[in-house]
């Protein structure tokens, strides 16, 4: 369905070129659901935007993105637009900036339906109400008439979800789709997405930092760090047997219900390397508890073990020392 090959994306900034995504290769089959997790600023959003052909003009891209057998960059702007909505759709991370603040919610949902699917106004309205109901917005009919500013953060996010789902896309990018939702609604929305996946054989890329969310709703997980995929495995495998020190550190810092209150949470000391300055060694070396001399000078390649579990580390966890 979607195939990313050796995707590299950099932005021209006034401090030189900022390398946001480095050599990412991913494959998403129809009906499959892939989770992308990783530190804030590791390039998750940029990666999904690039797959949709939605990059800022300051970005340059190399490598290929193939959707449904067609290379995205060989398509004209209009052809790319054709694929939006019905082919690929995206739930944006920032509902307030992605929604038009001066247009009513209803007209923003109905736009896709009338323009892309050629529905009549009345049908589109009916469908919009149904969609808002499915994302559990109270009183959908009233909600159609509101402006985004009159909705709560979580309601805006659900309106975004409704817009993305409106035209039954084949592939859905969900960029942090549930950050503004409480756990009960979150559980319902995730269940809705899973249902749709079965009903329509929709593929999904679920970008999130909540490992609890990806655990129950994805087939495979890609862990990103500083623009690279550092670990890629089936969800079961990843949780059972993680190999990257970074993934382990990430898991350790999840606060759990069992954490006693008032306690300090474990953190990964240090911060992401400067994306404008290429580093020779492993990008995680400055923060990795297992780092050795080799890590600082040589860059580890993505290695695949016998189970198809991929990782990018010289000294993976669980290996015989």
């Amino acid at each position: 369905m979607l195939k990313l090959e050796n995707l590299e994306i950099s932005f021209a900034t006034n401090r030189g070129s900022l390398h946001a995504v480095k050599g990412v290769t991913l494959d998403i089959a129809a009906g499959e659901s892939i989770g992308i997790v990783g530190e804030s600023g590791s390039g998750k959003t940029v990666l999904s935007r690039a797959s949709m052909g939605l990059l800022a003009p300051t970005a340059t891209r190399t490598g290929t993105v193939t959707f449904d057998g067609k290379e995205i960059s060989s398509l004209s702007r209009d052809e790319v637009r054709e694929t939006w909505g019905t082919g690929m759709a995206m739930i944006f991370q920032d509902p307030m900036t992605a929604l038009n603040p001066v247009r009513r919610v209803g007209s923003q949902i109905m736009e896709g339906l009338t323009v892309r699917l050629g529905m009549s106004k009345a049908d589109a309205r009916k469908r919009a109400i149904e969609l808002l109901g499915r994302v559990r917005i109270p009183d959908p009919e009233q909600a159609l008439k509101k402006f985004p500013g009159q909705l709560s953060g979580g309601m805006r996010q659900r309106v975004m979800i409704a817009i993305a789902l409106a035209c039954n896309p084949k592939l859905l990018f969900a960029d942090e789709p549930t950050t503004a939702l409480d756990v009960t609604v979150q559980a319902q929305i995730l269940q809705l997405l899973s249902e749709l996946r079965k009903e329509l054989n929709m593929s999904m890329v679920l970008v999130t930092h909540d490992l609890g969310v990806v655990a129950g709703h994805t087939d495979k997980i890609a862990v990103m760090y500083a623009g690279e995929v550092v670990e890629y495995a089936t969800t079961k495998d990843l949780f059972a047997r993680m190999r990257m020190p970074y993934t382990e550190a990430l898991m350790k810092s999840i606060p759990r219900l069992s954490t006693p209150s008032g306690s300090r949470l474990p953190v990964i000391e240090g911060r992401l390397p400067d994306p404008t300055k290429p580093e020779p060694g492993c990008l995680f070396a400055s923060r990795c508890p297992y780092a050795q001399e080799k890590c600082r000078t040589q860059h580890p390649d993505l290695t695949t073990d016998s189970d198809g579990h991929q990782y990018r580390c010289f000294f993976p966890l669980g290996a015989a020392q």
């Binding site: 997790v37 530190e39 991370q93 490992l211 810092s253 606060p255 474990p266």
Partner: peptide, 12 residues
Amino acid sequence: ALDVSVQAQILN
């Protein structure tokens, strides 16, 4: 909007 490790940093 933060991943768990940064989240922990901010909470601390």
